[in-house]
Design a protein around this nucleic acid. Structure first.
Length: 573
DNA sequence: GCCGTTTTCGGCCCGACTGTTTTCAGTCG
């Protein structure tokens, strides 16, 4: 059994314990043991003694060892004998937790969605202690809605929705500063809901305006400090608005950015100092409450270097930040964009317009990388047009003395493993990207043969969007990314982190492994329009999630360093 | 169930909101 499977089993045990009404700390202990395993960066094979890990004790280490040896757990088996597995599914229903499910099972023999719905319809639920008419109605509604609401939505979808919401929040006079919080602010690829923190002196008025101006389909909850609504924008999405006073804005933002696990780490740290953290501030030992003007200041108070939202996942970020600055990549480290398209293939703006926009962004250089001839749908360039394009690149370059446009191409790796241009053509270009746009259904061996051919070509400097995935839409081709990282390292080929919100390809997890292997990363927008140039921020944040440092990113090189890189021949990393 | 140069017992992160209650349990994040 691999680590992920073991963690899942520990979580399942916790769910069972929750439903049978076990001591909540015992429930939490199984979850914590799982988290402790996840935080440990070693593989299961690399861990000699699981009980030596903090948070894993006698019982949990026994369960883990059993799972490793046999794939089964005696604790889990006996729980499975006690109550039906189908009850676990009920935990997905809003408003139901272990206690209530336990009551429903014992009193009404409810075992799954169907029997719960019947019990509600027959009015038997409202008679139970702790349940009432309203609960019964809510449960019925939650069962209905659960069927047509996806459990998680992609960062692409949620970013679009967040932008719409923000454009409206900006028009509300009762609201001062506001910020995204939660998973979206941390840059997670998928999430269940949206969170915003709003600064206001008039919570009542702010809440009224929000409900008037946003397309809200239902108000789930409303209090003095927060409102929760459902917005219908194709999917029904739950959105939380947390209302904070100007003084408590930063601590509230920190609290609702999470993650929950990160907050727990921070509160432990506070507790050791005799202090207490809440969304309202930090309560000192003498009882005085203090607030902060930035999150940076908040972390400094605890003797920590700043921890960006992207790595607040409750792993070891607090320990790391205590030792030294995390040194993660920031948007301001980016000096150029190495992947963009113009009207010569499928872009919407001319070469001159795109170059001007890149320069206006403050970049020192950019690479023009239109599509190659085989990508007919994108009007890929023939050898003739590609060579003609060099003249236009030279003309545009002559316009600037503080910006360099490099000539390049995004060349297709064909299904048979050959490349779309000969080396005689490629050697005339400054920067060659290779990527797969066809025959996604090939076997892993065939896909890897293509990627290997590209890596071994002396002119290919970068593999773009290495997995071909589209978040929430398609999983990509069958690439073995572990193997690709080895090939990239051997051949000195960089790997892309494509910043497009629909791609984020490679993912944070994979770029982290690439960095560990010494492979350089290029964070590119793959812009087809001027607006898309701004997607760089999301790419950088995804890299930060993978703990990427600027020195491992190709497009953090200064103008001079990048010019040298272009001139040099490929060598292994 | 786990943990400890404050402790081997008694804590375990903290608060909002809802619906059920007449002061609080359960759920959620």
């Amino acid at each position: 059994m691999n680590k992920k499977q073991i963690i899942d089993k520990l979580d399942t045990i916790a769910l069972y314990l929750e439903i049978i009404g076990e001591n909540p700390f015992k429930v939490a202990a199984y979850r914590k043991a799982g988290q402790a395993l996840e935080t440990d960066r070693r593989s299961m094979a690399g861990i000699e003694d699981v009980s030596a890990i903090k948070g894993i004790g006698r019982s949990t280490s026994h369960a883990i060892e059993e799972l490793m040896a046999t794939g089964e757990s005696s604790v889990l088996r006996s729980l499975q004998g006690e109550i039906p597995e189908s009850l676990l599914g009920l935990l997905n229903i809003a408003g139901l937790g272990g206690k209530k499910i336990g009551t429903l099972y014992r009193a009404l023999h409810v075992t799954d969605m169907t029997s719960l719905r019947e019990a509600c319809e027959q009015g038997r639920v409202s008679g139970l202690p702790g349940f009432g008419k309203k609960t019964e109605e809510k449960l019925l509604k939650a069962i209905q809605e659960g069927k047509n609401r996806p459990e998680i939505l992609s960062i692409a979808y949620m970013t679009d929705l967040a932008e719409k919401i923000e454009s409206i929040l900006g028009t509300i006079p009762e609201i001062g500063r506001f910020s995204r919080a939660g998973s979206l602010r941390r840059g997670k690829e998928t999430m269940k809901d949206l969170d915003f923190v709003l600064e206001t002196q008039d919570p009542e008025g702010a809440a009224d305006r929000i409900l008037e101006r946003l397309p809200v389909s239902e108000v789930i909850g409303r209090g003095d400090a927060k409102i929760t609504v459902l917005m219908n924008d194709g999917y029904k999405v739950s959105v939380d608005f947390r209302l904070a006073s100007p003084e408590t804005f930063i601590t509230t933002l920190h609290h609702f950015t999470g993650s929950k696990e990160h907050n727990i780490l921070m509160r432990h740290l506070a507790k050791e100092r005799g202090e207490k953290i809440s969304e309202y501030g930090v309560e000192l030992e003498n009882g005085r409450m203090i607030t902060f003007s930035s999150e940076n200041e908040f972390y400094h108070h605890f003797g920590l270097n700043e921890i960006p939202p992207e790595v607040r996942e409750g792993t070891d970020e607090v320990d790391q930040a205590r030792r030294s600055p995390l040194g993660l990549i920031k948007l301001s480290d980016i000096k150029g964009d190495l992947h963009m398209h113009s009207t010569w293939s499928d872009g919407s703006y001319t070469i001159e317009e795109m170059a001007g926009a890149m320069r206006a962004k403050g970049y020192a250089y950019a690479c023009l990388t239109d599509h190659s001839k085989s990508l007919r749908v994108a009007d890929g360039l023939s050898e003739r047009r590609l060579l003609d394009q060099l003249e236009e690149v030279a003309r545009v370059n002559a316009l600037y003395d503080d910006f360099t446009l490099y000539s390049g191409v995004e060349m297709d790796i064909l299904p048979d493993g050959t490349l779309d241009y000969t080396n005689e053509v490629l050697e005339k270009l400054d920067f060659v990207i290779a990527s797969i746009h066809s025959s996604f259904n090939q076997s892993q061996a065939e896909i890897m043969r293509r990627l290997e051919a590209a890596c071994r070509n002396p002119y290919v400097r970068l593999i773009a969007h290495p997995t071909g995935r589209l978040l929430g839409k398609r999983s990509g081709y069958r690439a073995d990314i572990g193997r690709l990282i080895k090939l990239a390292s051997e051949t000195g080929t960089a790997l892309e982190l494509n910043a497009n919100r629909n791609r984020l390809d490679l993912s944070a997890e994979w770029v982290r492994k690439a960095q560990e292997a010494g492979v350089k990363i290029a964070i590119d927008t793959d812009s087809h329009s001027m607006k898309m140039i701004d997607e760089m921020g999301l790419g950088v944040r995804t890299a930060a999630r993978g703990w990427i440092r600027p020195e491992n990113v190709l497009n953090t090189l200064s103008a001079g360093q990048f010019a040298d890189f272009i001139k040099r021949k490929k060598v292994p990393f």
